[in-house]
Nucleic acid binder design. Structure first.
Lengths: 235, 235
DNA sequence: AGTTTTTAAATGGTACTACCATTTAAAAGA
DNA sequence: TCTTTTAAATGGTAGTACCATTTAAAAACT
């Protein structure tokens, strides 16, 4: 079989193996969905033992670059680079640093304001009305007593993602996703008591409406209100 | 020796080992600087082969939770959680997604504006005047023909970090550091030609002055100007 | 006694072999 | 043709042996 890799450096073997594999992924020689050679084949291509190959694959998996399947037709498959590992690291970072809730709220609020502004100026009419419909449905459900926390949390999350997508800039989407994984716990608190649950859902509805109306000032007011609620709720 | 770990789950061994080790780090049973038992000792504590232990340690190293040293007194030492792996993942993400420069600029501009606003309202007098002094010195040096690109880049980077610290919120600092690692290249472009180099340094000086004067509106103007220069420069 | 050199122990780095578990696809059987 | 069985490919795990590096203790030398 044709070898796509070179013999690995004798010191820092694992790093070298990782870099070579990363390279073929990044420069497009292997695309998402493609399969790397089997461990035993890589063993011969890199001229290194299987243990080192496995260590390298673990690192790439941790970086979320590959996915490993068992059995025949198994092996390391190239993934679409996602954000899970970043989010993972971030939540680790936040846990260890023990960051205060009000700092998180401050950050998220400013992020939301920026994203909202962008969403209003860049989002399409259709996106805006879709967002509004989703927020309205959410509000209605909550008003009618729907209270499954998992579903509520998931919907809240999806609304945030939808909004971030409207900003038409993947970097904002990245931060939102990273942050969201780190603090779903806080938002869940907001949906614990009925009082906050309804107020928050109504607030989402109001925000989405103002985004549809393309009124950034009012939208920002509702966003502030959202985080006031959250602050109040956390006491 | 007293065992701090339990026998690992027989399926998903590596993940289980990782989780157990992460746990003792996160709940403080082991602090930065402490050493994990040797691979051979972990082998017996987890009741698994050495290969699996090594795979788990690789993952933790990739997460930047531990540092591995060779020789006697070697082993896995707990690290202070940093941002290197996050920045790493981010630049990987950006490379693969091939994000357009103007999206990056848009993101950074809005980030800078927010940070500046916060810096003005939260930063101490002393921090503000320090920032100004640093920006002034930077401007003077560049005017007088100092042109070492490495030093210039480093100074620009430090100014950004200083500003981010004034915002008194570690999350902003995190994003700035992560972004900076990903795109130092763009900023370097700005300091290539003398025309842009001087204009940019002057702009930094103006921005810092307005921050010291606590005038967010003017400061924002200069920030916009900075990114206009960058856009212009990239053509 | 003090300094340098040598040695030994601890530990991570690597290779190799053997076998198990899972998955897929081909072969055999109904 | 459909179902069952079998075999091959591949990742998962264990274990052993040996190398390379680092540290600290022991020995040798002034």
């Amino acid at each position: 079989m044709e070898s796509i890799f070179e013999k690995a450096d004798s010191v820092r073997s694992v790093e070298d193996i990782c870099l070579q594999i990363e390279a073929v992924i990044l420069d497009g020689r292997l695309k998402p969905g493609d399969k790397l050679p089997s461990e035993r084949e890589l063993q011969t291509q890199f001229g290194r033992g299987r243990g080192l190959i496995r260590e390298a694959l673990r690192m790439l998996k941790q970086k979320d670059l590959i996915e490993i399947r068992k059995g025949a037709k198994g092996g390391a498959y190239i993934k679409n680079v996602g954000l899970s590992n970043i989010s993972d690291s971030l939540s680790l970072f936040l846990k260890q640093k023990d960051i205060e809730p009000d700092k998180i709220i401050e950050f998220r609020e400013s992020l939301d304001r920026t994203i909202t502004t962008l969403a209003i100026s860049k989002g399409s009419r259709e996106q805006k009305s879709d967002l509004y419909k989703e927020a309205l449905a959410f509000y209605e459900k909550i008003k009618n007593g729907m209270a499954d926390k998992n579903i509520i949390g998931e919907t809240d999350r999806r609304l945030n993602i939808t909004l971030a997508k409207m900003a038409a800039n993947p970097l904002f989407l990245w931060v939102v996703e990273a942050i969201q994984q780190g603090f779903s716990s806080y938002d869940y608190a907001l949906y614990e008591e009925e009082k906050f649950r309804i107020a928050t859902a109504k607030n989402w509805h109001d925000t989405a409406r103002e985004i549809m109306n393309e009124d950034p000032v009012k939208a920002h007011l509702y966003i502030s209100n959202h985080y006031c609620l959250l602050m109040e709720c956390l006491d």
